[in-house]
Design a protein around this nucleic acid. Structure first.
Lengths: 195, 195
DNA sequence: CGATTAACTTGATTTAGGTCAGGACAGTGA
DNA sequence: TCACTGTCCTGACCTAAATCAAGTTAATCG
C-alpha cells in the first residue's frame, strides 16, 4: 500500500536506519489508515487525544478558542508531520486544542500504548523519535524567540524564508493567526512589502 | 560526593529506574563538577555550546541580545534543570544565546559525545531522556499558547500559579523579560493586582 | 450558472504595552 | 563614610497592532 511506503521511507530517512520486513509488518498491523475530509476534526477540545497521526497527504491546523470566541492557530501541519496534542496524548488529559483538516487528508494513526511497543521493538522507530524530539526542541526554541523578540513584520519575513510553501498552501488568515496577528495586520504588511 | 548524590536521585526519580554501581561510576567519570560565580557565563553568544550542564545549585538565565542592545530572557533555570542551547549542542553550530549565572552555581557538565554513551549504556539515563523530552514538549506547547493568546496580565498570573518560587528568587526585571514585558509594565500589573 | 459564503483589502479609531524621564531606595565597595 | 550601581516605582507620551466597519474579490455548492 502506497500510504505505507511513504511512511516507511520517512522513518528510514529521518532515523538513518533500515526497517526489517518484520518491522514493517508490525507497523502495518497497528497504524490504521484514516481519511479526513476538509473541515473534519482530528481532535476536538475537551476530548482526550487517543491517537497520534502521521500525515500522508493533506494539511491541518491546531488551534484554541478563547472566551471571546477568538481562534488561535498554534500549528500548521503538512505531509510527513505528526498530528497530536502531546500533552493530552501522553497524560490522557482532556485537550485544550482542536485539530482540524484544512484539506482532505490521509493519516496513519496509532495509540500511545502501541507507540510504546514500536519504541521497544523497532530500533529505527526509537531512533526516529530521538531525532524528531531534537528537531522539535530546536524549532520550538526558535519559535519562542521569534514570538517574543520579533516584530510582526520580522515574524512574517521569517516565515517566508523558513516555510515559503505555507504561503501558497494556507489561507492568509490562518497564516496571520499562526503568526499571532490579525488578518488585517498581515494584509497591510504584505501590501507594504511589495513596494 | 554530595553533588552526585542529588544528581543520582534526580535521575532515578524521573526515570523510575535504578542506577547500578557501574552506572554511577560511569556518570562520575564523565560529568565534571564546575563552579560558576554570579554573573559568570556558562555560554556566550557566538560560541558552540560544547557542554550540557545539570544544575546542582544556583540559577541561570538564557537570553539573547538584539541589534538595539535589548536583552531578551527566554529561560530561567534552577536546581535539577538542564542548561544548554540544544540547537548549538546537537548541531555544533554557534549559539545565538547567552547563558549567565544569576547566583553562584554548581553544575555537573558533560559533552554531546559522552551523553550518547550514557544513553547507550545506562537504561535509567535514556528513560530519563524520554521523560524529559515529553515534559519539555508539553511545557513548550503551553508556553507557546500563553505567548500568543494571553495578555500580559494573564501571562503573569500563569507564572504565579506555575512557578511561584520564581517571584522570590529572580529580580523583577528578569521576570518581566521572561514574560516578554518591559519592567515598567510588570510593575504596573503588580500594582493593579494588589487592589 | 447564479447565489452564498468565505477570504482579502482598506480606512478610521482604540488600546495594550513600550519608551522616555525622574526619583526613591537598597546593597556594595573604595 | 559617601559615591556608585542596580532595582523598582510612577507619570507623560508614543506607537504597533487590534478592533470596528464597509466594500471587493474569490471560492463553493446547489
Amino acid at each position: 500500500m502506497s500510504n505505507f511506503e511513504a511512511f516507511f521511507d520517512y522513518i528510514q530517512e529521518i532515523s538513518g536506519k533500515l526497517l526489517s520486513e518484520d518491522d514493517k509488518q508490525l507497523l502495518m498491523a497497528h497504524f490504521k489508515p484514516k481519511k479526513l475530509r476538509k473541515r473534519q476534526y482530528f481532535l476536538q477540545e475537551g476530548d482526550v487525544c487517543k491517537y497520534i497521526g502521521f500525515i500522508v497527504k493533506g494539511s491541518a491546523r491546531t488551534f484554541t478558542v478563547d472566551e471571546k470566541g477568538h481562534e488561535n492557530v498554534l500549528k500548521l501541519s503538512v505531509e510527513n508531520w505528526w498530528l497530536a496534542d502531546f500533552e493530552s496524548f501522553y497524560l490522557l488529559t482532556p485537550s485544550r486544542f482542536n485539530i482540524e483538516a484544512l484539506e482532505d487528508m490521509e493519516v496513519l494513526q496509532s495509540t500511545n500504548a502501541q507507540i510504546e511497543e514500536f519504541l521497544k521493538h523497532i530500533p529505527a522507530f526509537s531512533a526516529m523519535q530521538n531525532v524528531i524530539s531534537q528537531n522539535y526542541t530546536i524549532a520550538t526554541q526558535k519559535r519562542m524567540q521569534a514570538a517574543f523578540s520579533y516584530t510582526a513584520e520580522e515574524r512574517y519575513e521569517d516565515l517566508i524564508s523558513n516555510y515559503p510553501h505555507f504561503l501558497k498552501r494556507f489561507p492568509q488568515n490562518m497564516i496571520a493567526s499562526y503568526l499571532g496577528l490579525s488578518p488585517e495586520t498581515l494584509s497591510r504588511i504584505r501590501k507594504n512589502s511589495f513596494k
